[in-house]
Nucleic acid binder design. Sequence first.
DNA 1: CTAGGGTTAG
Length: 631
Amino acid sequence: MNSTTFHNHALAFSHNSSVISKCKSMRHLRQIHANLIKTGLIADPLVASQVLKFSALSEHCRRDIQYAHKVFVQMPQPNCFSWNTIIRALVEVGDNGYSVEALNMFYLMLESEFVEPNKYTFPSVLKACANVGLVEVGKQVHGMIRKYGIERDEFVLSNLVRMYVLCGEMADAFVLFEDNVSRSDCKKMNLGNVVLWNVMIDGYVRAGKFSVALEMFNDMPDRSVVSWNSMISGYAQNGFYKEAMEMFREMQMGDVCPNYVTLVSVLPAVSRLGALELGKWIHIYALRKGIEIDEVLGSALIDMYSSCGSIIEALEIFESLQHKNVITWNAMINGFAMHGQAKDAINYFWRMEQVGLSASDVTYISVLTACSHAGLVTEGKSIFNHMHKVGLEPRIEHYGCMVDLLGRAGLLEEAKQLIFEMPCTADDVILKAFLGACKLHGNIDLGKRVANELMEMSPHDSGSYVALSNMYASLGKWEEVADVRLRMKELDVRKDPGCSWIELDGVVHEFLVEDDSHPRNKEIQYMLKEISKQLSLTGYMSDTKQVFLNIDDDEKASALHYHSEKIALAFGLISTSPKTSLRIFKNLRICYDCHSTMKLISRLYKRKIVIRDRKRFHHFENGSCSCMDYW
DNA sequence: CTAGGGTTAG
């Protein structure tokens, strides 16, 4: 190559390189690529690498791994950078990547005599091992890393530890972690160090070892936003909602600011606890901080608002989102389902298909639940059939919805038939739905059989015993009730304690059945007496049919007055100014008596009362409930 | 060229 052509070449390269770096679409890249082939400039490994890098890893547009692969295999002598690029692209594409392909590519790289893997190669290779859970391969790779003497590189090291963590080998991860953390001076706690702690914390959270994770979290010298996020999402995903929210609160006391992921992680906990005030704060925080409300954060907000009783605000978020994916629609449809707005759920279900998104299996669960809670049998059936039409195989959850839909509507025979006909074997949830229907429609014979089957299936689940006992109680068969209770005692099965909570000024107050532990218990008790006095003035008689105990009517009535939602209600009434609406949450489903009481109170005290029970919302206003007494 | 995320039958 003489100096002129070299000069031209260098010019051409810098020109093409900048063209590629400004490239915004694969279409555009193809044009440039074609041109490079025509002019022969593609022969320059640096130019070819740029083309490869764009098609494999561009962040401006959808990557095209197939195209990248074609570019790569046409390279006569790919350099180390090219190998690293294609391996990383293979690991990163899609959800779990083409990890096996990436590993195969890595093996080819090892065989190539022109290149050696370097510290940029191994992070991707380790990720591939972790993705497919190949610890043995990971260990071999670990050996190679040692041989190359790059084990101490912070990126290599953190990926190495993460590989062990994701393969469930916490002991191996810990050895590496400890070796490297104790080695470093306390003075220079660098970023790589925080990452190692974070990876370990994440590992313990994944392994369910929350106390170890927390201990490490407390011990670590420096916490980044990721450290907080790992703890928060770990708690939230494992049902430790209070802990997740507590962490989030604590985080705000410190100097690390919540980011996008923090919000997305904590919102499910806020939803489950119904902490609307905090949820609103998070929404405003995102707006104030300029955190983009995309379809992911948007879906979490929709779920939060609808789970906290504010379906209108949920809808506002939904409408405001430019990009909506299936999960966004699901969150909205599920919101309608929870609020008993079955017609809306169904409308949005069809609208979703109109805008070209196909409903997922989750969508069907939500829309079928909506039909079930509203008694829309015909609609539910046709939507269930629609599933077949679009080629979605109903899962047991869908059959569960249908059994519930039919059973609730009193079509017990049809429900039973479906249980026999469905391709999967009935699980406890299906039988519980059916049992609930038997109970609702007073079919004691069928109910008894299902309850017994259920008790055999899961003898330590209190549900079947309670349902059976309630069925007997409603028929006044006290001997049988005592019998069921004896069986429970023998097997040490306990009724799930009812629990309700109410959020006032951002603080969640929790009440159990017959709870007298609240600091304002005296006033609460006084209010409860006042309520029952008011109720009896209207001639209301407690419905004691569903009381679990065989005691006399007076005692039963008082037992009902101490259901946790009533205590929470009394507390809400004495703690808020007149006309304020009250939102109460309950871990179980609301009982018939509490439901009637709430209706009356909404009229007597002129309060809107919103109750979220285990499954859905009840909006009480002026003596009636949004569920139209069908729940 | 490291770590963290949303919807789901009783």
